[in-house]
């Protein structure tokens, strides 16, 4: 399989560079991701998710959805366009091994943290996503994800511009208001 990929890549591009690239390790190939997602699992880029310690089955599903254009964000769709199934799996496993993102230095405003916690409990976010928001299998890790990204993506689930792999999050967000989304994003990003 690997050998075939190599040959096909070489034939398709017809350059030495490509066959060298096919021999690259996943760590080397992932350099292309770090510009946006951050090198140590923690994103420093607005609206771009941290990937560290993300659940591998979830990451695989998302990378697959980007490749199939079932989830749309052009740079990610381009990035994954020519990935093989095997590539998707390798990148998913790779990001799951990156260190988990760190909580921000400020501990968070106690009143806002309290409000976020209450909302997370009322909506059972901490059931599917685990009590410590570490996620499991196809349910993503959320703890210390970027606040701006959480805000954006939760709003997109709500207005159905982000289609989940299944309908779970669209259903969950049905009765969560925009204002509550902001409170949840604040809480989850500051979670300790």
């Amino acid at each position: 399989m690997r050998a075939i990929t190599k040959i096909m890549a070489a034939v398709a591009v017809g350059s030495l560079a490509s066959s060298v690239q096919a021999a690259e390790t996943i760590e080397q190939r992932a350099a292309a991701c770090f510009g946006c997602h951050g090198e140590h699992g923690q994103s420093e880029t607005a609206y771009t998710p941290s990937l560290g310690a993300q659940q591998s089955p979830y990451a695989l599903i998302q990378l697959f959805m980007f490749r199939e254009k079932l989830r749309t964000f052009e740079p990610m769709n381009d990035m994954t366009k020519s990935f093989t199934d095997d590539d998707l799996q390798k990148f998913a496993d790779f990001v799951s091994r990156l260190p988990k993102p760190q909580p921000p230095t400020d501990v968070g405003d106690p009143a806002r943290m309290q409000k976020g916690l209450a909302l997370a409990q009322a909506n059972h976010c901490n059931s599917c996503h685990n009590a410590d928001f570490s996620g499991k299998e196809n349910v993503p890790r959320l703890a210390n994800q970027r606040e701006d990204y959480l805000n954006k993506t939760l709003n997109e689930y709500k207005d159905n511009t982000r289609h989940g792999y299944d309908g779970t999050m669209a259903d969950v967000m049905g009765s969560v208001s925009k204002e509550q989304i902001a409170a949840l994003a604040y809480y989850i990003s500051h979670y300790r």
């Binding site: 967000m173 009765s175 204002e179 902001a182």
Partner: peptide, 23 residues
């Protein structure tokens, strides 16, 4: 990019689960 939204008044009661929720 927007700055974090201003703190809003806490809802009086916790919201019920949405009708579609598997929980």
């Amino acid at each position: 990019a927007q700055t974090a939204s201003p703190p809003a008044a806490a809802p009086a009661a916790a919201p019920a689960l949405p009708p579609g929720s598997p929980l």
